[in-house]
Write a protein that binds this DNA or RNA. Structure first.
Length: 817
RNA sequence: GCGGAUGUGGUGAAAUUGGUAUACACGCCAGACUUAGGAUCUGGUGCCGCAAGGCGUGGAGGUUCAAGUCCUCUCAUCCGCACCA
């Protein structure tokens, strides 16, 4: 029989569907594995990145199923989001119809690739049931002070007409459409993720070993914890008078208190409240105000190009020396970090230095290298060192003096030790239609009121006009009008919807819910206790910060709300590399995409899966290569074709190893080597490419002999090992010859590795000069004398200095002269 | 600038603890079978050299009997963060 991918693949896909082959058991006494790939956005069609993602998780799922584990390998769709609305604007489709059509199409693609997902647990986050539970969680979070509404300067994307979280601003532009963002003052809902800053940071330690180092570092940097000193700078009397007595002081933060005697000016962010006050009260001349306004309206990228600022005509007193220090506005001071004001030590900070040089401000060095003088004539000295010109702290090193100076500030109540974070609260409201409505109501009498849980879900109206102008919910004629849940009077429903990252922050918990209970609860404590944490989470590195940080945050919140009792959701994280073509990431705009459907039609799903897992280890980039795909296809054909040598059997053949020929023994050894390598690969290393290479070697070795028992045993095992990679082919072979009995746990027979003789390399001074075959029990002397014979011509006339025998590996002879 | 990686044949890549560098595959070359081959099978293929031999894991040193692997320095590429006080 010739290999017909179409026939075989259709046959088994249908079989798996009919037999519910991949549904997890509800028996919680069994050992479980929860294997999850990051769920996709239903963009329309699968791309190769998806195929790679799910090929990896499917291989792991199928492997553990063979091992007898209770495997949860679910799939869903992250189905709210802007592209559905953009499609609506572009071609008049309805976001809902567009989304669910895409889901249907993509589901078919998934099953045509043979992925072993639990069909009963399929879901989409835009399902009303999902929204219902999510809104309920939101209410809980609000009640517990983890969600709040506040007016603030927000990142606004003028193109998408919506607010963005700090995390969604990339290089000052919208992460989705690349439009430069502007700041806008408006009301917004926030999750209090900063409450968990320390825990999110500290628990990264628990993930070491399970998560890639790079991701841990990225999260660490993102949280951006830094320790230092915060203290107040007081205005002199003249400045106080200028400010009409409204401000006495402002506070600053520094991580380098050791440099404090070098302060020669201070700087405020242009958005600082003192600056705002001065502008509003006409304390600055028009030219200055114009400059400040211009500075504020400059994008963050442009602001970075050159340091700029201007003096405010105010002075503060140095907290230790009492010296008068001028106050400036500087464009490099960020309003949203620390207090939006800094003490400037140009001698020991690059930014302060540039600024001081530009405006000819004092540069006072107070730190010098341990055994040298400091020179700040051309650049700041930013290393730590030894203090001088620092009164009582002279001669101390930076570290020691930091401690002492903070202590002194605290004793004199001038300031205190402080920790700052880059992490900000997560702004979650979006002025869009296709998202989960935020379940609140604005009542004139009662203020902001939560919706009652029995009224959930607050579902989206279907009859909306989506034209890209404003918020469709805001513009809807009736939807927002409702009765206040508290007093019953007419009120206005919140028209903002939630950031889609809210849905992806808990979907993995929803998958734990038994299909029987879907209507009743989001999930039960027993269900999540059994299935979580996720044993393997597979996805792209692009989610290293946003999604993974938010999901960790939600897990901790849910723990504190009593829904679950663990700290971290993802035990092991596998970040797959990108799929490239011609050296660049596959993308429609570059026109270098390969359509999975076409590959399936031409070669079959198994070929696509094999190529993807064989061409590179999963964490590395994968270069798409058409002839490589051909090669994978050829191997499957050959593997299928050679199965003719197998004799039908329901149990693995028993073979007396001692009676076999050399080739037969070798073939068995290769088969079992492939098996033991597969254990390592599926269990811990995930380098599927090496495992597949091992199987290819085994097939090559089987091909050098004709013993039908050896063939049958070999295929019994190889079809089992390869089933997670090329499931259709392996089920076909296993069904034809083994009644599927071989798709189960395999046992490594150590006897096949026992050999009578062994090859050893001979090297002289570390250079390979020959090899010998020695009996397995040969003594060191026997080995040495044999080795010397083989390399006799190299030893002639030389003095033998040392002899090293590494058992079963090699002999190294050291010679001189 | 800070942080994280990665550098091995013509190509994708192996080498688990320092122990025969280049497994497996692609490509290429030769042969077989074929009306034909972009099918299939068999063999060859790191580089230089007729050979003996020499040289080879980005580069330079070092440790070791032995280094792709460990140490020091350096170069290149990729990714992330980036005026974070």
């Amino acid at each position: 029989m010739e290999y017909q991918s179409q026939t075989i693949e259709k046959k088994w896909q249908e079989y798996w569907k009919q037999n519910n082959s991949f549904e997890p058991s509800e028996d919680f006494t069994q050992e479980k594995k929860y294997i999850l790939s990051m769920f996709p956005f239903p963009s329309g069609r699968l791309h190769m990145g998806h195929v790679r993602n799910y090929s990896i998780s499917d291989a792991l799922a199928r492997y553990h199923r063979q091992k007898g584990k209770n495997v949860l390998h679910p799939i869903g769709f992250d189905s709210f989001g802007m592209p559905a609305e953009n499609a609506a604007i572009k071609n008049g489709s309805h976001p809902k119809g567009w989304t669910y059509d895409n889901i249907d199409y993509m589901k078919n693609e998934f099953y045509s690739l043979g992925f072993s997902f639990s069909r009963k647990r399929e879901m989409a986050t835009s399902d009303e049931l999902y929204t219902k539970f999510e809104q309920s969680f939101i209410i809980d979070m609000y009640e517990n002070g983890l969600l709040y509404r506040e007016k603030g300067m927000l990142n606004w994307c003028p193109h998408d007409e919506t607010v963005l979280a700090n995390e969604q601003v990339v290089d000052g532009c919208c992460w989705r459409c690349d439009t430069p963002i502007v700041k806008k003052d408006m009301n917004q809902y926030y999750f209090k993720i900063t409450k968990y800053s320390d825990e999110l940071l500290d628990d990264l330690k628990k993930l070491e070993g399970g998560w890639p180092k790079q991701v841990l570092t990225m999260q660490d940097n993102w949280i951006g914890k830094s320790n230092g000193l915060a203290f107040d700078l007081f205005f002199d009397d003249e400045s106080k008078a200028k400010l009409n007595g409204t401000f006495e002081n402002f506070d600053v933060f520094t991580t380098r208190p050791d440099t404090i005697y070098g302060v020669s000016y201070t700087a405020l962010a242009p958005e600082h409240k003192i600056v705002t006050y001065m502008i509003e009260n006409n304390l600055l001349d028009e030219a200055t105000i114009a400059q400040i306004t211009k500075m504020k309206n400059t994008s963050s990228i442009d602001r970075q190009k050159e340091k700029a600022g201007l003096p405010l005509g105010l002075n503060v007193k140095h907290p230790l020396t009492g010296k008068i220090v001028p106050v400036w506005i500087a464009n490099f001071v960020l309003m949203d970090y620390g207090s939006g004001a800094v003490m400037a030590v140009p001698a020991h900070d690059d930014r302060d230095y540039d600024f001081a040089k530009k405006y000819d401000l004092e540069i006072n060095a107070v730190i010098k290298p341990k055994d040298a003088d400091v020179d700040v004539s051309s650049a700041a000295f930013t290393d730590s060192g030894v203090l001088f010109n620092s009164e009582e702290f002279d001669g101390l090193n930076s570290k020691k003096s930091q401690y002492n100076i903070i202590k002194m500030f605290e004793e004199k109540e001038l300031g205190k030790k402080t920790t700052n974070y880059k992490l900000k609260d997560w702004g979650v409201s979006r002025q869009r239609y296709w998202g989960a409505p935020i379940p609140f109501v604005h009542c004139e009498d009662c203020g902001l009121v939560m919706e009652k849980k029995e009224n959930l879900p607050i579902a989206l109206p279907d009859d909306v006009e989506i034209n890209g102008e404003g918020s469709p919910l805001e513009n809807h004629p009736t939807w927002k009008h409702c009765a206040c849940p508290e007093c019953g009077k007419p009120a206005i429903r919140e028209t903002d919807t939630m950031d889609t990252f809210v849905q992806s922050s808990w979907y993995f918990l929803r998958f734990c819910a038994s299909p029987e209970n879907l209507e009743k609860t989001a999930f039960t404590p027993e269900e999540v206790k059994y299935w979580m944490g996720i044993d393997h989470y597979v996805g792209g590195i692009e989610h290293a910060i946003l999604h993974l940080l938010y999901a960790r945050f939600f897990t901790k919140v849910f723990r504190d709300l009593g829904y679950l009792d663990f700290d971290e959701p993802f035990d092991k994280l596998l970040t797959q590399g990108m799929v490239l073509k011609d050296g660049a990431k596959m993308s429609k705009s570059k026109g270098n995409t390969v359509d999975p459907d076409e590959i399936i039609a031409k070669y079959g799903a198994d070929t696509a899966r094999l190529f993807i897992l064989f061409a590179a280890p999963p964490t590395q980039e994968l270069e798409w290569n058409d002839s490589g795909v051909e090669g994978s296809h050829k191997f499957i054909k050959r593997f299928f074709d050679r199965s003719q040598n197998v004799v039908k059997t329901d149990t693995i053949p028993k073979i007396d190893h001692s009676t076999l020929s050399k080739e037969e023994k070798f073939a068995r050894k290769k088969v079992y080597e492939a098996l033991s390598r597969s254990e390592e690969v599926y269990g811990e290393r995930y380098t599927f490419n090496t495992m597949i290479a091992g199987v290819m070697e085994a097939v090559n070795a089987l091909n050098t002999q004709t013993n039908s028992d050896v063939w049958s045993e070999g295929y019994w095992i190889l079809a089992s090992i390869m089933e997670p990679v090329i499931p259709h082919t392996c089920w076909e072979i296993s069904n034809t010859y083994f009644s599927l009995n071989n798709l189960s746990k395999q046992i490594v027979l150590e006897e096949v590795f026992v050999e009578d003789t062994i090859m050893m390399g001979i090297s002289i001074n570390g250079k390979r000069r020959g090899e010998i075959e020695v009996a397995i029990g040969a003594s060191k002397d026997e080995i040495l004398s044999l080795a010397k014979e083989v390399v006799a011509k190299w030893l002639e006339g030389k003095e033998l200095v040392k002899e090293i025998v590494v058992p079963k590996k090699l002999v190294n002879l050291v010679i001189k002269g």
